[in-house]
Design a protein around this nucleic acid. Sequence first.
RNA 1: GGGCCAUUAGCUCAAUGGUAGAGCUUCCGACUCUUAAUCGGGAGGUUACAGGUUCGAGUCCUGUAUGGCCUACCA
Length: 507
Amino acid sequence: MAFSTDPAGSSGPESPARLQDAEHEANQLVQIRLNKTAALRARGVDPFGRRFERTNTARQIIQEYPASEQEQVKIAGRLMSQRVHGKASFADLRDSSGRIQVYARVDDLGTDAYQDFVDLDVGDIVGVTGRVFKSRRGEITVAATEVLLLTKSLRPLPEKWHGLRDVDLRYRQRYLDLLVNPEVRETFEKRSAIITAVRAFLNQRGFCEVETPVLQTLAGGGHARPFTTHHNALDMDLYLRIALELFHKRLIIGGFDKVYEIGRVFRNEGISTKHNPEFTMLELYQAFADYTDMMELVESMFSTVARQVLGTMVLNYQGKVIDLTPPWARMTMMEALDKYSGLGWDSLPDDDTSRRVAGSLGIDVSDKPTAGMVLDRIWSDLVEPHLVGPVFITDYPVEISPLAKRHDDNPKLTYRFEAFINGFEACNAFSELNDPLDQRQRFVEQTREKAKGNDEAHVFDDDYVLALEYGMPPTGGLGVGIDRLVMLLTNTASLRDVILFPVLRPK
RNA sequence: GGGCCAUUAGCUCAAUGGUAGAGCUUCCGACUCUUAAUCGGGAGGUUACAGGUUCGAGUCCUGUAUGGCCUACCA
């Protein structure tokens, strides 16, 4: 094997002595590789090489066969396994496109280069020059004429056919998870494709992608506890955003017709298979539209993205078949409540009555002081589990929708909907409240809620009301949890399967 | 926050309260078409951590750490 020469000689920054510190010293497997690395340096070979110009990826070569037969190729990737047969060897090379077999013979490489090839370790990153052929067993293979070590790997990879199972290690060392569990890579490639498809869909509809502040003096636009941080120069506390909403509507006031943002939001709450403290939210706002336009947009966007990424609008999610083909079913919140719990709007007129009614249904509401919170509990216990196929639930009560426009026919309700898929909320949308007087009053009510013990009630945002006073056109707005959309489209049960580096306690 | 479970070699996993084992990896040797290559021979352990019970603890008890599942929270 021809190695690139090391211009720095053997006095590189990571001399064996330095790497032997700490727990390196204890591990025999690492020590052997450190010794090999030192031996390479002693021969003037750089174990951490330079750029390598590839002509093909593994997948290209295999897809183009038999046209690629006998073709000279240069490929690069990580050595994933080695089968040494005396004076001839096979190895598997993995690059981002897939896996391809490499064949090395002493006759082709010469004695020294062949020995260097045999001395490689699983995990090493190499560049291979060779000729494409099909082995006797029928596998498309590159017969190496030159092998260049590009990066020496000092640690053994996880076991080759069980992969990495320990979930703790999978999240803490996601790079290993990605290397040895191919389906994990596929999930994250799909995530990227989904987000690309969402952007393309919105751009095509004339939406303008915007960026709004992550650091905010008030964490508004949602019901959640924020993370707090501090700005030193201004000597003031700032909050990480919990939603995108209020800044987007300021943009609509400023004359934008259609805006969207796909951004990280932060909520200082529990961690579970459906919750991560930071997650990705899509929000969009469209002037001169209302929530019915948002319904059409959601149906169209979800089904289009599914068709583009998966090739079908019919999903199989955790054993359930879910058909995203528009139009989706529609039901008011009261219709759904009546259908699945037998309760009507009149059953929950005030805080005390609501708590009594819930108690009689056997639902624990000891920590639910208000009628709105009781309704939510009944809703998630009795109704949500039934909402499997995509369904728009409309007309939410005004108390729990402080930024949504009031219903013309019933001032207790709003022009709001959530889409439910497989029992959980896939999006939240409404005709935006653009009456600054009503908005001010809603904030006042939220402040009262807060006083009653709901520490996730909205904060009063005077500056936002000021903006509304200049006039916001009638507007439809929508929020979508991107991570949950990805879960749905990749058939994964845990949010941690769609977030590359989920929050973990330090070990 | 509560309950249950898990933690043993680099990785995947075994081990009635009685000498800590296997496969993969790794090392040495053989082998010029293998693909979980094969064959022979080695090395590799503070059984997560700290205590306790016991003649004797990977195993039983207590606590701690990390993770998983359920539950709660997240309207």
